[in-house]
Simulated scan of single mutants.
Amino acid sequence: MSTLELPCEGSCRCGQVRLKIDAKPLLTMACHCTGCQRMTAGPYSLSAAIPSEGFEVTEGEPVIGGLHGDAIHHYFCPHCMSWLFTKLEGVDWFVNVRATMLNDVGWFTPFMETWTSEKLPWVTTPAKHSYAALPAMDEYEGLIGEYMAGN
């Protein structure tokens, strides 16, 4: 396992959209919801919550995909359709970056997993915290503190 070296760059599969992070994650997650399963064609999505000021699209113009019209905006490459990151409407202090889009992902381990009520029965992760849906809003401050203290 390696350590996250900042800045860290990444891209979509075809390379037309490039991004850079230069802040440590607030949390790392595996989401088991059926929406993530369908968008990744896998058992879960992996993301790192990056402080907004530490995230930048350096090349290309991502487009919103996934569900339209809700408060969750999933951004994709318009050419290869790789899912790059997610922003929550009205929550501008972090961006959920798909960890596997970064050039170096060896540092990544999910700290928490969400929507385990929808996970495939054979899936396991090394996450320290598991939630049937999402943590209560008042739990995030403690989770972020715990994650950042250990990373």
Rank of each mutant, 00 (worst) to 15 (best):
L26K: 08
M148W: 01
C36N: 05
N151D: 11
M148C: 13
T100G: 15
Y131Q: 06
L27Y: 05
M137P: 11
H79A: 14
A49E: 09
E61G: 04
E53L: 06
P25H: 02
E59N: 14
A149D: 12
G142D: 15
L88T: 12
G10V: 07
F85Y: 15
P25A: 03
S45C: 13
P121H: 10
P25F: 09
W115I: 04
A132W: 03
G69P: 07
E5M: 11
T116V: 09
L84D: 07
A127K: 09
P78F: 07
V97Y: 03
W93M: 12
K119H: 11
T58F: 05
P110A: 11
L19T: 10
N96C: 12
W122M: 12
L6C: 06
V123N: 05
A99S: 14
C36I: 08
T109F: 11
V91N: 10
M137A: 15
A149C: 08
E59L: 14
M1A: 15
A133R: 14
S130R: 11
F108T: 04
M112I: 12
H129A: 09
T3W: 11
C33W: 03
G106P: 01
P25Q: 04
G65D: 05
V97D: 00
G66K: 10
Y44C: 10
E56D: 09
S52H: 03
L19P: 02
A41T: 10
T116I: 06
C8R: 02
I72P: 04
G145M: 10
S2C: 12
D104V: 00
W107R: 01
S2R: 13
V17E: 01
G54W: 06
L26I: 09
E61P: 01
S117P: 07
F85A: 06
E146L: 06
F55W: 03
E139H: 07
D104M: 09
H73Q: 15
D104R: 01
F76A: 08
G10N: 00
C36Q: 08
T100Q: 14
V63L: 07
L143R: 02
T114E: 03
N151K: 10
A23I: 00
G65E: 00
S117E: 11
K20S: 09
W122K: 08
A127W: 05
T86H: 00
C80H: 01
P62A: 06
H32A: 07
G66N: 05
F76K: 08
F108E: 08
Y140A: 09
F55L: 01
T100D: 15
V97Q: 03
V123E: 11
P62N: 02
N151Y: 13
G150L: 12
N151S: 13
W83C: 07
P126L: 08
E139C: 02
T3Y: 12
A132D: 14
S82T: 14
C8H: 04
M29V: 14
F55V: 03
V97N: 00
N103C: 01
T125S: 10
W122P: 01
Y75A: 09
S82H: 04
M137L: 13
